[in-house]
């Protein structure tokens, strides 16, 4: 039961991020939408590791969070004319 509730909430969050990514008039809107989606799906990875009863799966979510941060930083540096 708790699994269904969690998946519905995560699905709603990812769909809202997708809508902003498709609609968003400027590039920063889209970048923030994808960054938010990566944060939401990190929570999904942690919950799936709990569901599968494997503690090694939590390491994947750590690597995931760090690496999506690098991608977000690269896009942000581009948007402020840096890099």
């Amino acid at each position: 039961m708790e699994e269904i509730v969690f998946l519905v909430i995560i699905g709603a969050g990812v769909i809202l991020c997708l809508l902003r990514m498709v609609k968003g008039p400027t590039a920063p809107d889209r970048a923030v939408a994808v960054d938010t989606a990566s944060t939401v799906t990190t929570a999904l990875l942690v919950f799936l590791g709990y569901t599968f009863k494997r503690s090694i799966y939590l390491d994947v979510s750590l690597v995931y969070a760090v690496l999506t941060f690098i991608g977000a930083v690269a896009i942000a540096r581009y948007l402020e004319r840096g890099i």
Binding site: L18, M21, A27, R30, A31, V34, A37, S38, T41, L44, L45, L48, F52, I56, Y57, D59, V60, V63, Y64, T68, G71, I75, Y78, L79
Partner: peptide, 28 residues
């Protein structure tokens, strides 16, 4: 740059699907 951001989202979801299919090393 918008296309690159959308490509990042596609790669994100692909990683989640690999994780769902119980291949965490491929997802990483």
């Amino acid at each position: 740059i918008n296309a690159v951001v959308a490509m990042a989202l596609v790669s994100l979801i692909a990683s989640i699907l690999f994780y769902y299919l119980q291949a965490p090393d491929v997802a990483m």
